[in-house]
């Protein structure tokens, strides 16, 4: 298994609220796993916990990635090990030029893995290529990171980062929210282009719509901090048609 989550319990550090309550999930290399669930079920919390946000505390359970326990690793160490979170709300950082940020991220990871750092011409070439594929204009990359980007541009910039950093596990946290249908198609194409037998995806979404374009191998329903049902893409269609109520009722 690439990612193995066992009996995970997570609470918010500040107010001790338990959000994840005994979650089990396994994802194989090459698999696209979708997580669906109503608001407040813990979807975004799960993505933050995997990426290492310190305002959540793991009180029980384990998470291993390629056999390694990641819970003691800092966010940058997790990134270096191959985990990437495409944020639901990418941060705007005034004063940090997007290109400088991209270069710092790529070279930090390369350095940590003992690879040679990219020289500027090679870096520019890689960015131009990926930006072209994703329809991201080089003009917006001259701006400060995510500042003045439209909602769609922010999401595309996340996928651009993902393409450049070439992670093994890509977590997409509601990447479809705020996207019109054209932007959604571009983003999905970007994701599909990265599908690979050595790379897994954890796609978190409210709606089945995204899964028409990024077709999942497995679908899991998250409710009240636990996976209450798992299936294939048919499960997503069922949820779209009938809502969550009967799945929740049959799990109770």
């Amino acid at each position: 298994m690439m990612l193995e989550i066992k009996n995970l319990h997570v609470k918010i550090v500040e107010d001790e609220t338990e959000i994840i309550r005994g979650l089990d999930l396994s994802i194989k290399a090459g698999e696209v796993a979708a997580i669906m669930g109503p608001n407040g079920s813990g979807k975004s919390t799960l993505s933050y916990v995997l990426a290492g946000r310190d305002k959540y505390e793991v009180t029980e359970g384990s998470v291993t990635f390629n056999g390694e326990n990641i819970l003691d690793m800092s966010p940058d160490e997790r990134a270096v090990s191959g985990i990437f979170l495409a944020f639901q709300y990418p941060m705007e950082i005034p004063g940090v030029a997007t290109m400088n940020f991209l270069k710092a991220a790529m070279n930090s990871q390369r350095k940590a893995r003992g690879q040679a750092e990219l020289l500027t011409p090679e870096f520019i070439r890689l960015v131009k290529q990926s930006a072209g594929d994703l329809g991201v204009s080089m003009d917006i990359l001259k701006r400060a990171l995510n500042v003045g980007f439209s909602g769609g541009e922010k999401k595309r910039a996340e996928i651009l980062q993902m393409a450049l950093l070439e992670p093994n596990l890509c977590i997409l946290d509601e990447t479809d929210s705020g996207l019109d249908i054209d932007a959604l198609k571009i983003v999905a194409e970007g994701v599909n282009a990265l599908r690979d037998k050595d790379r897994a995806f954890l796609v978190i979404t409210h709606y089945q719509r995204l899964l028409e374009y990024i077709v999942p191998d497995t679908v899991h329903v998250l409710y009240d901090g636990r996976i209450i049902q798992s299936g294939d893409k048919e499960l997503a269609l069922h949820l779209e048609k009938n809502g969550y109520a009967d799945v929740i009722a049959s799990a109770a």
Partner: peptide
């Protein structure tokens, strides 16, 4: 903001400096 930068693999010290 710090978490965002670190989640891209930039170490804490360098992220703070940025």
């Amino acid at each position: 903001q710090l978490f965002y930068l670190m989640a891209r693999g930039i170490p804490e010290k360098q992220s703070r400096e940025l």
